[in-house]
Design a protein around this nucleic acid. Structure first.
Lengths: 182, 182
DNA sequence: GTCTATATTGTGATAGAC
DNA sequence: GTCTATCACAATATAGAC
């Protein structure tokens, strides 16, 4: 879906998103979407060629929202901490959409131009333009987030403390330390 | 599956694991497992109460293998770097089992005692016993790994450099820096 | 743009005979 | 412990009428 959505397409995407957020990916069936709209499942194929196209539209919407939240956070006095908080809280508010966006390859050809970059830019900026450090920071945030969403941490883990520890470590370029060679 | 596996159970788990590693989770059907063993699907239910019990046995085997690899790595001169390499390479060698182990809640009641702790211990040790820092390091490693397995990094990303950047940041307790308050 | 009818394929699981 | 037979679902997608 590189083009703008028609009115009916937008309605379908909205219905799909409500199902996704309420019941997870397995709740998003063509039948269920159609039922939400009061039509029959085969009718959806007049608006989207297949289910994947619909999912790409969901992912695109997620990036747009993330970009907004991240840009706002990056204006904070402490951008890295604020970004981490925004990252975690957006994902926690939309866990199933977050997983849809991160757990499989991005179909970049089916996304509107620039949406991925718009969400990533505030993170790179907060890392002083260091792309490698920004990817490390993203990986840390994604790791914390996905393990929390999957309920994979031990029950006694202090997640706030783990976030703080990681953010503190990643914040500044440190004085050089014994460095790995490969 | 808290008890030790019988011979036939072990054969079934081996067959399931081969299917998993070769074809991903959707290849692991009761029918396919049975076919690998030359029996019919319903016969499997004489050995395992349901599919979940079988999956727990797979996860347990994964933890045992990880523990071995991590203990060996932690004896290196540079434990954190060696552990990171071991983590990434074990996951890359067994991507579907790794995902099975990390992307949903652990059924700790169905796992043999201590297997989770055995895999985690070398990481905690490499972080000087700091559990929060260890969880941050785990999250970083899991984030890098899962994003790589999901093919979610942009095509031009230098993953080795991102790993290095994160490891360097997480390595030492730094001199105190401006610290986040919450 | 919507409908009905249907193809096709798949799943985990149970009953009951041997 | 294995079999056959079968239940009870569920999914995406297409053809063709209106």
């Amino acid at each position: 879906m590189r083009e703008r959505l028609t009115g009916r397409q937008a309605e379908i995407v909205d219905a799909a998103r409500e199902l996704l957020e309420a019941g997870g990916p397995e709740a998003v069936t063509m039948r269920a979407i159609a039922e939400s709209l009061g039509i029959q499942a085969p009718s959806l194929y007049k608006h989207f060629p297949d289910k994947e196209a619909l999912e790409s539209a969901l992912v695109a919407a997620g990036f747009v929202e993330q970009a907004e939240a991240f840009v706002a956070a990056s204006r904070s006095r402490n951008p890295l901490t604020a970004l981490a908080r925004a990252y975690r809280s957006w994902a926690t508010a939309h866990p199933h959409l977050y997983l849809l966006m991160t757990s499989r390859p991005l179909e970049r050809d089916r996304l509107p131009e620039g949406v991925e970059a718009a969400a990533a830019a505030p993170i790179v900026k907060a890392c002083g333009g260091d792309a490698d450090r920004a990817r490390a920071a993203w990986a840390f945030a994604h790791g914390m987030t996905s393990l929390e969403l999957a309920d994979r941490f031990p029950p006694d883990a202090d997640l706030d403390a783990a976030w703080r520890s990681g953010i503190d470590a990643l914040r500044a370029p440190h004085a050089t330390q014994p460095r790995s060679t490969t």
